[in-house]
Design a protein around this nucleic acid. Sequence first.
DNA 1: CACTGGAAAATGCCGC
DNA 2: GCGGCATTTTCCAGTG
Lengths: 97, 97, 97, 97
Amino acid sequence: MTDGSNGIGAGNLQVFIERIERLEEEKKAIAEDIKDVYAEAKGAGFDPKIIKKVVSIRKMDVHKREEEEALLELYLSSLGMLADTPLGQAAVSRTFG
Amino acid sequence: MTDGSNGIGAGNLQVFIERIERLEEEKKAIAEDIKDVYAEAKGAGFDPKIIKKVVSIRKMDVHKREEEEALLELYLSSLGMLADTPLGQAAVSRTFG
Amino acid sequence: MTDGSNGIGAGNLQVFIERIERLEEEKKAIAEDIKDVYAEAKGAGFDPKIIKKVVSIRKMDVHKREEEEALLELYLSSLGMLADTPLGQAAVSRTFG
Amino acid sequence: MTDGSNGIGAGNLQVFIERIERLEEEKKAIAEDIKDVYAEAKGAGFDPKIIKKVVSIRKMDVHKREEEEALLELYLSSLGMLADTPLGQAAVSRTFG
DNA sequence: CACTGGAAAATGCCGC
DNA sequence: GCGGCATTTTCCAGTG
């Protein structure tokens, strides 16, 4: 109580808000970077719309892959082969890599 | 065509796509960080809903301020044509009144 | 099934769709009216861009006010739990300060 | 200049803005009506998403029809058969009706 | 687990 | 005709 705080951490609200705002700015900056890349690709003669479609298709593939990995981990853990261990992870990445 | 390219710059396309995917991963990671901060704030006894609204109101403040500045700039440019006319002056005073 | 219906209420579907289409036509007509007003204002010597910005700023004012009221309501409901604690009071004063 | 106005109609800016705001409110009200209809249709067991798709498909058809009508009008006017007259319009609607 | 509200993406429109 | 902007639509997390 000698540090000027109110002793219950309520002032942290301000801190939380600032952290969030900072992160949202970063997020926004990255979104702008993405737009820039699309613009650059367009300048190089690629249709942004098509690129976007390609990206989304690849994302779906990744998603599917993630589901499969999750399923494998489930199996492994059911079998007592802990996927949370480096060994288990190695098994997973070896299978899907 | 002896350089291994396929004539449509597919190699560059690949590069663009990978840059986009990398940026989207970063964006996603930040979004998760934001979620974490909300969770942490909740753990500290703050209502995430309230925090979210505070953040959005503060964002609106900023946005509103930017809009007002943009409006002022519009006026300044318009006033190049209008400053000497009663119409222009009336428009300005009417809008800000 | 002796009533002539097909069992899925398709007749009602038709009615819903027509209502929607009718309303969308009205909406479109109003959008055109708005455009007309802008054109008319322009003809009277006002810069449509400025008008649009003024309108949007005024709209933000309204929206901001609504958000603030919603936030206050959130506080009031939260204060049912928090009003007697320093934490709750600090959160409120911190947010509005 | 005895009516209290400034004599150049500048005060009309206020009027224009209010007209626009009034129209935008109407537009918003209709948008809400549309939402209500979707909700009502959903309550009757129809999937709003599907309805939306049906509406958009029908809209596309209408759009195409409008293009065809515009083309016909162009032809008619080229032929001296004025599409802007009731007679010309009747010819168009007879063709597409 | 369906619903509501809000963020993000896509589309269409306007001015240059 | 293109880029930027506003609107609209879609998606998703949070909530009851």
